[in-house]
Amino acid sequence: MINILTTHWSDFVHGFGITLLASIIALIISMILGTGFAILEVLPNKFVNLVARIYIEIFRNIPLLVVTMFFYVVVTQFIKMNGLVAGTIGLSLYTSAFIAETVRAGILSVDKGQMEGARANGLTYWQAMRIIILPQAFKIVIPPLGNQFINLVKNSSILAFVAGFDLMYQGNEIASTTFDTIDTYILVGVFYLIITLPLSYYMRYLEHKLA
């Protein structure tokens, strides 16, 4: 195992870097989109609710692999992008649907009186949402949000299917050239843990700090 690690160190590190980068970018995009669509779902406007609902149901109910292949195979015929970009977009949109559902649940669990109090106090809907409702909603949904983040990092292995040169992709390459599949995939698993375990503990820490 040590042998594989040392001889393919740069491949592992490269893959790890790509996985980390794609995860961070997808996390930022999916948080922004997810929060945005969560707000669109709770806005007092039936049409906007419907648009948000359609978006969420589409990306929540189609397999991640299908979404990603759509961007890699179909969309690339019109807009040039490599596997890493296509995969990261697919991952972002897919995850954003789950984050939207999570954040929406958080917003709905904030007492209705908070919005009424803020509106009666003279704040606009958006000011109340930003300053009063969302901070309370996020605090409530930190644990399920942590799950989504961890799923996102693991799901980034989808990049291997679209030549994204991520950790999983490098693992496949190493395994097929060395034939040492067991050791290679154990090492790949350990590299994923290096991202997901600290993330998991950080979310737990946040939960306790803000509780």
Binding site: Q114, G117, R119, A120, N121, G122, L123, I131
Partner: peptide, 30 residues
Amino acid sequence: RKNVGMVFQHFNLYANKTVLENIMLAPRIV
């Protein structure tokens, strides 16, 4: 609503703000 204040049965204070912040928030931003 700048000219009409309201006090509710269930208070509706901002749960994520201190007492002073509750009082100072709307005058500051509105």
